[in-house]
């Protein structure tokens, strides 16, 4: 069941996008499907709303894009840059720290 609270998910799609794009270049639709399938549908970014996030990441230099035709379909593919790799490392660190303290609080007796 997808998480309804957008506040709880703040920053999560961005982190996942960066991680996915670290492995390979992808286009928007592919990114949304990959996040949905890898999280078992728990995290499903809005189909159309991923683009402003991708464009913002590209504007800050974390991603680069290029138009590429594959199997006769032309799409914009995104890939991680050096700055994006650093951002991913930083966000991952923050996420792990946050996750660890939230777990502590939740499991405190």
């Amino acid at each position: 069941m997808p998480i309804e609270s957008t506040a709880l998910l703040a920053g999560v799609p961005e982190l996942m996008m960066l991680r996915l794009l670290q492995a390979q270049e992808m286009y928007g639709y592919e990114i949304v499907q990959a996040i949905s399938s890898r999280t078992g549908g728990i995290v499903t970014p809005g189909e159309g709303v991923v683009y402003p996030l991708l464009h913002a990441l590209e504007k800050e230099g974390a991603l680069k894009s290029r138009r590429k035709t594959v199997n006769g379909r032309s799409r914009v593919y995104y890939a991680l840059t050096g700055r994006g790799t650093k951002k991913l490392a930083s966000l991952s660190g923050d996420w792990n720290a946050l996750n660890s303290v939230v777990q502590k609080v939740l499991h405190a007796v």
Partner: peptide, 18 residues
């Protein structure tokens, strides 16, 4: 599935840099 016009516009308007 793509999202309503309001959702799509809201996502873009959230980024002041645009």
């Amino acid at each position: 599935r793509l999202g309503s016009d309001d959702e799509l516009a809201g996502a873009m308007l959230a980024h002041k840099d645009f």
